[in-house]
Amino acid sequence: MGPFEYLWLTLFIIFICIAFVRKYPKELGTTTLIFVALFLITYVGMPKLPKVLNDLSSQFLETPLSQRDMQHLLATIFSLTFVGIVFSSYAGQTFSFKGKPVGGARGFIYNLLVGVMNGYLIAGTLWFFQDYYQYPITDFHLLYLPLTPVGEQIANFLPPYVVPPAYLAILVAIMLLFRVRK
């Protein structure tokens, strides 16, 4: 595989393409669930789960987890949870905003904007779990470090670094208000 940001860019572009196929009212449903997932993970999961895992490990394995094992475990759990929530928002009966999307150039721009937003949120959050827990995936030699200077710059703006959990809750509330209004 290659540098980390290439994977990020690939995922980002894939989600832009998905937005053009599904159209923005459906994609905004996914955005809502991404905000909810991000809120739950950053506000509840990340502060509480390490202690729970340590307690469980001490209880059942009779030894606390090493720091690197903990980083592996947390990055994997949060990534899988996040991917699971995102996947559920795409599969089967989905949460979407009812109404008629605008067409033409405006529709194109809106699809693009939502695609960019979802791409940034999804790819950025998955990258964040790696960055925050010091890139556990590199231990498997799937991707390698160091990041390029551009990658270093992007890594400072990954969603959970720049969007506080309380703000995510506000965004979810706003989106639900619009959903009810429609």
Binding site: T31, F97, P101, V102, L113, M117, V163, R181, K182
Partner: peptide, 23 residues
């Protein structure tokens, strides 16, 4: 500063949500 990304997210969400016409 640091509030740029959150503000952009809010702007995009509100702009696009308000464009959806009720059926």
């Amino acid at each position: 500063g640091d509030w740029t990304v959150p503000l952009l997210l809010l702007l995009v969400v509100v702009l696009i949500l308000s464009s959806i016409k009720p059926t």
